[in-house]
Amino acid sequence: MSRDANQAVATPEGNPDPQPVSIRRNPLTTAVILAATFVVWTFLVFPAVWIFVGSFKTNETMFSATAFTFTLENYATIFRVGFGRFIFNSLFICLVAVVISTFVSVIASYVFSRKRFRRKRLLFGAVILGQLFPWIILVTPLFIMFARIGLLNSHAGMIFSYVAISIPFSVYLLVGYLETVPRELDEAAVMDGCSQFRIIWTIIFPVMLPGIVATATYAFLLMWTEFLFALAFLTRTSLKTMPLGLAQFFGEQSIDWGAIMAASAVTTLPALVLFLPLQTKLSAGLTAGSVKG
């Protein structure tokens, strides 16, 4: 009894509840926050849900709020017209580009973070500058260049351009992340007899894996949804990526909404599958990287 009484005195509001009193928000504030969250959530999630549900509807019931006729015909349609090929193209281009970009960025960020050399700041600035160009400016010069060296209508050309656009921000993020990794780790590895290359891949790489995963995921999603370069550099249907494939369903005469819904669902799926399990690492990685840049 006396302990309870003591605690009641100890709590700021004189609350006799022995539970520690947490900081409580004004109920009105809570309601506003909840409402705002709900609105944002609706705008973000509703279209995705609508597309997902719509992809299983027939074209007749597509825009009806009440009628629903389940069908897999939309999925059958898109794969019949070769959407599978687009999925493969996208996966191939994006995965290869992410691996190359990550490999280069890890080494580049290690050098920028750990090595002393002349003109380092200038060089780092130049890398970051690459991030500042609007992509549309790059389309024409890249098109001419690719035309001359035969990289138009090729996976290699796409991989090349995706690697180029993802390296600046990857290096930027990874350098920031590396600043949080103590240099003594490198030095301990030197004392243990590691070569320079080995230090990066057996010591630093595992330590900065959260940062690398975050960066690679971000790069992948950027490439996955990229439309502009693909539209400019790929004209042959067998080479096209998913965003282009999706656009194909917007015909000049008619629009196959069912196919668009199904194709959109398929486009979203890999991103979701990739993104959801990594969500916590992603935010941790991005935060850690953002401490110092």
């Binding site: 103590p182 003594e184 780790l185 030095e187 301990a188 590895a189 030197v190 004392m191 243990d192 007899g193 590691c194 010591i203 595992p206 330590v207 894996l209």
Partner: peptide
């Protein structure tokens, strides 16, 4: 450094966080 017959103990330990104690000790 590794061929000098010299080992070093660092102020902040500098243990490899992804390796076990045995892995850390046996790495060299």
């Amino acid at each position: 450094p590794a061929k000098r017959g010299i080992a070093m103990v660092f102020q902040n330990y500098a243990l490899y966080p992804h390796k076990t104690v045995a892995g850390n000790m046996g790495f060299a």
